[in-house]
Design a protein around this nucleic acid. Structure first.
Lengths: 234, 234
DNA sequence: GAGATGTCGATTGTTGAACAATGTGGATTG
DNA sequence: CAATCCACATTGTTCAACAATCGACATCTC
């Protein structure tokens, strides 16, 4: 290693190494698989999640499962009753109404607050979500169409570029999925909005924000009625 | 109990009993005391929270402390590094900027969306927060003045009556407290806004929403600069 | 003495077992 | 049929243990 005065080539290369991310804990990974499962519609609302079953399935201990549950509980993805454990969240009509109220506030505000020109707006992920939805529809996978729809609307709020707002809204959209699952026929729910999302996206990209806003507002109003009805117990 | 058809007096009284809340778990109570402590400014940002110390202090086991930590972590009240544990959140300048961006979006939207008349608006808690601030100032307790200020602004968003938005914003206000604590002299920070909050409150109660909005917007802009500067490391 | 390396105690991540408290469903009883 | 009782499953919580990691200090090398 003796390298008298001057540049040290090997060391320079070392500095360029990407600092490797700390390996997430078991509890974090457990929370993630459950969270992703819910977002993608693989868990029906109301499904009980016994600690022992989860521990066995994930190959971790009960205490670690409980840590993951506390995380997901704080994210409102699980229902919890003391001494009864957790289950996949089931939305009440009041929940659905609240979610649509928030969507109206945040999604419409997001469009209203756009000041930059369409060119400098980051619409790549927006158009990607529209494409993802069309692709899923071609495959007849209507649950995946719903996922793409959730992503599309999350991207509208993401135009604001606020990490906190993004995270909050992503969480609200995950709750939204739990409402989608209450609708018996996902196709009749999502199919009409495939095209609408495309038109909204086109309008945003073209800078026609007033038109986009009106389409979005109308969509939220219509969908709200469908979901609130679906989550209302017979 | 044989009570042939008809009203059963004793039972009727029983039905009116308020269903007593399930006793919260130890982890929930632990999370609550830490959360309240942070909101009220009793923990300095960066303070490490070793699991064993907390367990001893609260009289619970380490596993239960960890459950509480996972909850508070999901609420962004704690900084966390794997294998290093948690500490009271320390805001970065980017955090402070993001928080004020969200405050602008949500607090101003809240005023804009008010449609009801001043009379039917629930302004009791708003005026209470103003009074609480004045009272604390009389006692020279400037940290408590800050708490009242946080409550006042949380109440502005609460005018919308959305449970989810309330909870999210309450969390953001708790983060805000961590920014307040970075300011050396709390008096010079909060004193000028005591009166301003009173004027905003009066304007809202009088239905002069445009005036209230403008005062609020100006406040957020000014305060933003102070807090961002305070959390910027020397 | 400065920088690199080795070492040790403290803290965290995780597990498994244990036990009390609570909830659940079914059998029993009147 | 309703109320009661009982056995069983699940949750809330603790404890002790151990590997992995971190931080600080001692040690070595030049």
């Amino acid at each position: 290693m003796g390298n008298p005065r001057g540049v040290r080539p090997q060391r320079a290369a070392l500095a360029d190494l990407p600092s490797l991310k700390p390996q997430p804990t078991a509890a974090e990974r457990a929370a993630e698989v459950i969270r992703d499962g819910i977002f993608e519609g693989r868990f029906m609302p109301g499904t009980p999640l016994p600690e022992t079953d989860l521990a066995d399935a994930l190959g971790i201990s009960r205490n670690t499962v409980r840590e993951a549950f506390r995380t997901l509980q704080a994210e409102h993805l699980l229902d919890y009753e003391v001494n009864k454990g957790v289950s996949v969240r089931r939305l009440t009509p009041a929940d659905a109404a609240d979610i649509y109220r928030i969507r109206e506030i945040l999604e419409l505000s997001s469009l209203d607050l756009i000041t930059s020109t369409p060119a400098e707006l980051d619409t790549a992920l927006l158009t990607a979500a529209v494409a993802e939805g069309r692709h899923a529809a071609d495959n007849g996978d209507w649950v995946a169409v719903g996922t793409a729809n959730l992503r599309f609307h999350a991207q509208i709020v993401a135009l604001q570029g606020s990490p906190r707002l993004d995270e909050f809204f992503q969480r609200v959209m995950t709750e939204m999925r739990l409402g989608f699952l209450a609708v018996a026929d996902p196709r009749s729910l999502h199919e009409p909005y495939l095209d609408l999302n495309g038109r909204i996206c086109a309008a945003v990209c073209a800078g026609q924000l007033a038109e986009a806003r009106e389409m979005l507002r109308h969509y939220l109003h219509t969908a709200r009625g469908e979901i609130v009805a679906a989550v209302t117990p017979a």
